[in-house]
Design a protein around this nucleic acid. Structure first.
Lengths: 150, 150
DNA sequence: CACCAATGATGGTGCCACCAACAATACACC
DNA sequence: GGTGTATTGTTGGTGGCACCATCATTGGTG
């Protein structure tokens, strides 16, 4: 029998926000599976920021990654418990907690990076490198414009 | 003072899945604001499918929209309560509930469609129509390939 | 008839984005 | 110098989405 199932409704297929969401869902499925049992995407973002910018306050981490301050807290504390980060009060500013990447954290970051890289290849399998670059450039322009508008 | 805040870490900016997620977040912020107080994106998807394919079983609705059966249930029941959908058992198959779009539902769909269309324009403001089309075509290929792989 | 598949439904999980409020601290201005 | 404003870390909570397991009912197949 195997009657052909209906395809995605045209109204949805034509909707940019819907297409983007479908892609994001696929990307998250792949990366979450790749990261299963290690860390969340959010934690990877925090590690990446600390690796690039060195010891930072939690507020700064939140700003450069787009993660809410309150969500940074939970990510940081669980990674402190796992030995990937260290926290110390800022001598110059009593409000700030300076977060530092430990060697174990750096190692962990590299592990996660490799796992995520594989997921990216799987995700973009259908596109040539040039096409991938073009798509990402366009997406980045959309994101940048949205941040300007805000 | 106003020291420049750190930009997004290069590791993240270079990550396709991260860029896609940022775009999806922006898209959802815009569409959710546009739809505030009316319906969810999921409900719009269900309405779109019913409008295009006519009365359908809930399982079919789930399949063509990519929404889980269990999530279709809640969307359908709330829209039945609001008078946008009607449910009747399938005479030919005792398991199926045939869902039908009411005239009020069709009206509601058109209202939502207009609201969402505005949000799309806002989202893609930075791109020319040709660029938007190119981006969406590439995204659709990624999604299609992912569905093949599954 | 026995077995397997599909359907609607219920309940639950986890991740993410976002918001409100608060105490402590820093800073700018008069 | 004291007052008001802003920032920071933190707690707690909300809502949406994707997904999973399970169940009783029903269809279809061998």
């Amino acid at each position: 029998m195997n009657r052909a199932p209906h395809p995605t409704p045209a109204r949805l297929r034509a909707l940019p926000s819907w297409v983007i969401n479908q892609t994001a869902t696929a990307a998250n499925r792949l990366t979450d599976r790749a990261l299963a049992g290690t860390s969340s995407r959010r934690q990877f973002a925090i590690l990446s920021a600390l690796d690039e910018y060195g010891p930072s306050s939690q507020a700064d981490l939140g700003r450069c990654t787009g993660i809410d301050r309150s969500d940074v807290v939970t990510g940081v504390t669980t990674m402190v418990e796992r030995g990937f980060l260290r926290q110390r009060p800022d001598a110059a500013d009593g409000r700030r907690n300076i977060v530092t990447l430990t060697p174990e954290g750096k190692e962990h970051l590299e592990r996660l990076g490799a796992l995520i890289a594989d997921a990216q290849d799987e995700l973009l399998r259908a596109l040539s490198p040039a096409e991938s670059k073009m798509m990402l450039d366009l997406l980045r322009r959309v994101v940048a414009d949205d941040q300007d508008a805000t």
